[in-house]
Design a protein around this nucleic acid. Sequence first.
DNA 1: CCGGGGATTATCT
DNA 2: GATAATCCCCGGC
Length: 202
Amino acid sequence: MNKLPLVFYERQNVVQIAMELIGKIIVTNINRQVVSARIVETEAYVAFTDKASHAYNGRRTPRNEPMYCSAGTVYVYICYGMHCMLNIVTNKIDVPDAVLIRAVEPIKGINYMVQRSGKTVTDNSLSKGPGNVAKVLGVQKQHSGLYVMDDTISIYEDGCQIERGLIGCSKRIGIDSAGEDAHLPYRYYLRGNKYVSGKPVK
DNA sequence: CCGGGGATTATCT
DNA sequence: GATAATCCCCGGC
């Protein structure tokens, strides 16, 4: 299993990168607990023009500073005061493109994930939804600014090629306040996967 | 099964 | 002081 090369993240089409991240493996090594999971749902946030992005119109604050760093930087922020969101920054320095990881399918270290989630039963709600993803992977605000080519949070490909027809596309979730940009088809997911958030596919 | 609303706090204005 | 890229529980059907 090989790490995705830096050039994967350095490309300029963040929407395509979001689609290609479906099926890849994310690995975290936090507090000496190694867990891995397959990415089954992502969303793209496009630099400057995207009203749903924290960096809309070039907005730059201490919180979103990692979005302006080089490709492969990890951006974590807190939403609704209690949930962490895990993003991977793409494109070149000073171009704040990012991909939000919305759902994963556990592979290794499921016992750690269950422990972190505080749940007593293992079901498909374990790692469904961006808040839960960060929670079970052990990712917190303090990890914002890390680099995906390092070993704390990293992404691999295992040669498993997802058929194009198995990748679904829709508008993004939970960003109704972004006006017309809320309808952009920037969300990608693995069709039929039970860990994908939102309503079941019709 | 589905929809409504409360929880809870970092961040920005 | 208002807002937010969410989650979970509960009540109704």
